[in-house]
Design a protein around this nucleic acid. Structure first.
Lengths: 355, 355
DNA sequence: ATCAATGGTGTTAACGCTATCATCGCACAC
DNA sequence: GTGTGCGATGATAGCGTTAACACCATTGAT
């Protein structure tokens, strides 16, 4: 093949080898297993590499060694503080173990998800982390047939694909509404974006409904405005609609702190007192939640920990050890009661149990 | 070489070729340039590929074609809503043009930045986008010697490395403080994280100081609590310190809406009226800014547009066209005055000009 | 003196794909 | 019948790296 030497061919290990007066293999060794190279040679190679600003081609390395050195994560949206913290946990822990993280953001779209999964698999990751599940059979099939370790996170599936580090969205929904019931509320609404692409939100809603039913309360107060990812404005519109249609509503569980902030805003605009007339609860315990006026009751999730643990499981699995703690971890969650539900900062933990 | 057939070798184009009864080259052609393959063959190959769930190895493809098909972005932190929107703009536009985005988050650390840059270059991206500059000479040298198109964003350097899509952080700082001066404030403070790794924040501070000086006002009210990325709690602490030491302060420009929220909170706690006693301005126009109580005056940046434009420049450059609009775009910014500086939603635009 | 073990280095053959060129019909024109 | 052009496919040679093994001095033990 005669590829014409294009304007800017990059430096290869061959260039370094020539400059250092050694074989190309010695260059590779110097970089990857310096202890196998004599100090004198090592020094020569290192200085040659530095002089040329040599940066090894990782694609070529992966191809040859059959080890890509990276792990992929597929998530619905980077615009979600919680997911982002999980990504941080993954990234930090993986980096410490010599892996890099490939991020695949599917923007809450099923089509993107499939295309993205395909492209991620094309980079031959050594493991895949799913933040909150695959949403098409095609994607599931693709992943199932690729011989790659998988960690599902942010939910608690009945039939795990492989490993899981998460918590039960259903339980979150139920626990939150239970706690509102406990406070004496009886006309409790739910506000979330229940499109086909937010199965997690839907599960929380199911939990919410279950709580209402077992308490014998009405379960008709709900609205599904907007679509994931949830925006503040969705909360504004949703609150407006709900307050119009269900003026008797005395508590509202929101699918996100974003939505809850919008609700808070709309209540302020209408002069509806929070929490006296309406108690409000969010989800996610976003940074701003405790600094709002009134401070916002929310659900705190072990977001960072999820990423960290998932990474540990992956590292252990790849190196052939027994998966670190256990291949299925339910990390639970905490409900943080604040002023928006009439409290002064108290905390309720709901934790772990195998499925 | 005798690599032992490991447990799970993945499907290659050779497998597909055999199943379809064609040469391996025809498989490649079918996937990349289907119009050069006869319909009958194409159908056979496609069905074989589907049957085997074939996912081409992109690393091998890149290596062979010398085109990686991706663009890298290096940013100080993903935990920054504005940067994230730029990433969205990049990702969307690049995807439409057949490129993928590699994200490198350096967590506001100089060391990470260098290591990350090295690893990104190792993947041979066809272009690199920098969100807010390189912070070590080593990194600059590395990038300068790699023959890769570069787009700098989120600032406005005196000596651009290559292409730039941004705005002047200095101008932002000056414009904001000018507008506070115009409102009659005379004892204006600045609160930001001024570590060595937030040159942008530092530039805004310089702009702020310049504004004060040309108005002949005192410029000693400032505090540098915390380090990037800025947290709400840094605002709380900073405000506490400033209010203690400079009770006469009548306006405060913050380096981030996060910080500003913390300040707002601390003022509430101390019973310091906003904006009557203290006017507060943030930076970034985060989602929540207009929904706070009082709503927060801030600086809105063309975050998404920056990414979009950077991607367009890159696509044009790679395909050899003249860079889309111009290789140096100053996109300007807008100051949004809200209640926290005593206004009712007005907007001031500061736009474009070549350096 | 002989052999085995050892440490350092080089040689070779892949890894899975694509660029390039060669080949092979087949139609159409003269 | 020969040539020309064209559309479809195959053969070959890499891309830049690493795994595996071969090799060659040393060294130390026998």
């Amino acid at each position: 093949m005669s590829r014409k030497a294009s304007k800017a061919r990059s430096i290869t290990s061959r260039d370094v080898a020539e400059l250092a007066g050694v074989s190309l293999m010695t260059v590779s060794r110097t970089l990857r297993t310096p202890e196998l190279v004599s100090p004198a040679t090592r020094k020569r190679v290192e200085s040659a590499a530095r002089k040329l600003n040599y940066v090894p081609d990782l694609a070529a390395g992966s191809l040859s060694s059959q080890r890509s050195g990276h792990v992929a994560v597929l998530l619905p949206s980077l615009r979600h503080a919680g997911f982002l913290r999980t990504v941080d946990g993954l990234s930090d822990t993986l980096r410490d173990n010599g892996y890099h993280l490939l991020i695949g953001d599917c923007y809450y779209s099923v089509d993107q998800q499939l295309e993205l999964l395909r492209m991620l698999l094309g980079r031959r990751p050594e493991a895949i982390v799913l933040i909150s599940g695959l949403d098409s059979p095609a994607a599931q099939d693709l992943l199932a047939r690729a011989a790659v370790p998988v960690v599902e996170t942010w939910h608690w599936p009945d039939d795990p694909h492989n490993m899981v580090v998460g918590f039960s969205q259903f339980d979150v929904g139920r626990a939150m509404t239970d706690s509102l019931i406990e406070k004496g509320h009886t006309r409790i609404g739910f506000l979330g974006a229940l499109g086909p692409f937010d199965p997690n939100g839907e599960q929380r809603r199911q939990g919410h409904l279950a709580a209402l039913r077992s308490a014998g309360l009405r379960d008709d107060i709900q609205s599904s405005v907007g679509k994931a990812p949830m925006e503040i404005e969705d909360g504004v519109k949703g609150a407006s609609w709900l307050l119009e249609h269900f003026p008797e509503m005395d508590a509202l569980a929101c699918a996100s702190d974003m939505t809850a902030l919008g609700v808070l805003h709309e209540c302020r605009r209408r002069g509806c007192a929070v929490p006296e007339q309406l108690a409000i609860a969010g989800f996610g315990d976003f940074d701003f939640a405790q600094y709002l006026q009134p401070s916002l009751t929310s659900v705190r999730l072990p977001s960072y920990r999820i990423g960290q643990l998932a990474a540990q499981l992956i590292v252990a699995t790849i190196s052939g050890e027994a998966p670190s703690p256990a291949p299925h971890c339910n990390l639970g969650f905490e409900i943080i009661h604040r002023q928006s539900t009439g409290n002064h900062d108290s905390l309720l933990s709901y934790s772990s149990s195998a499925p």
